[in-house]
Write a protein that binds this DNA or RNA. Sequence first.
DNA 1: TTATTAAATGACCTTTTTGTCATTTATTCA
DNA 2: TGAATAAATGACAAAAAGGTCATTTAATAA
Lengths: 138, 138
Amino acid sequence: MFNKETEYALRSMVYIQAQNLKGRKPGVEEIAGATEAPRHFTAKILHRLARSGFLLSSKGKGGGFFIDREKPSVSILDVVKEVEGQKIFSGCVFGLKNCSNEHPCPLHSRYVSIRESLGEMLSTETILSLAMKYPAYQ
Amino acid sequence: MFNKETEYALRSMVYIQAQNLKGRKPGVEEIAGATEAPRHFTAKILHRLARSGFLLSSKGKGGGFFIDREKPSVSILDVVKEVEGQKIFSGCVFGLKNCSNEHPCPLHSRYVSIRESLGEMLSTETILSLAMKYPAYQ
DNA sequence: TTATTAAATGACCTTTTTGTCATTTATTCA
DNA sequence: TGAATAAATGACAAAAAGGTCATTTAATAA
């Protein structure tokens, strides 16, 4: 479905959110372990998410990653768009550059409704909503 | 959605089928041109599809690729499975190794129905059904 | 103020995907 | 038969994705 970087980003953020809810700020080591993702690659991704405003971090003892409690929780789609761009919505099963209602590929009409369902799911679920319903990270 | 190889394979097969319906057997050059795919990569993919029984070919003057008229047309899913394996059905939005009803990721329940819709589309549409309704390749 | 902890940073490496090319083999037709 | 045509084959190369590592910077606490 998504590339590895996006998957790790989603799992990391959900794990961080779940831990934040318990008053904890997990570090890279813990996050990578809990989400079963490569340690260093996870560090790179977390850094990226922090630079783009999806995460906050603190250095030094007791430091780690956390999510701004003031802002409303970001949607899964927001994270996906940040990490791998808009391609979910422009993606065509047939691989056409500009597949649209005007120039549809032969699967277009059937695919649009599926893509809309996907978009609906990804934009209504948030990091917080997933953190609250995923016991494995709590 | 799919990788490049799969996209080129689908477009090539639909183009070949559409041309076959007009009594023609297109060659690599023509197929790559019509489907806007790289010439040599297309040749490699066509060869692969021929070896795995999805295409027939003839060498020499007047030669080219064609699809067995005796067999029922293969589904889009058949082609996808051949080129990139089963991963469409095991794919988890969250990237979990064994995401299932028993061990669901937090998006599992919402995603399964979307994946089923996708599977339904890909298994009911065939190379022939697409060839017949895609004027661009006729 | 120094040792410790943990994130920040950037260079680098590996694997997979994507794409190219030269040569060989088979077929057709004059 | 031999010239032309077109697929078969396998080696190679480029680009993108995935992943690692060493060093630096910042914060904390003894």
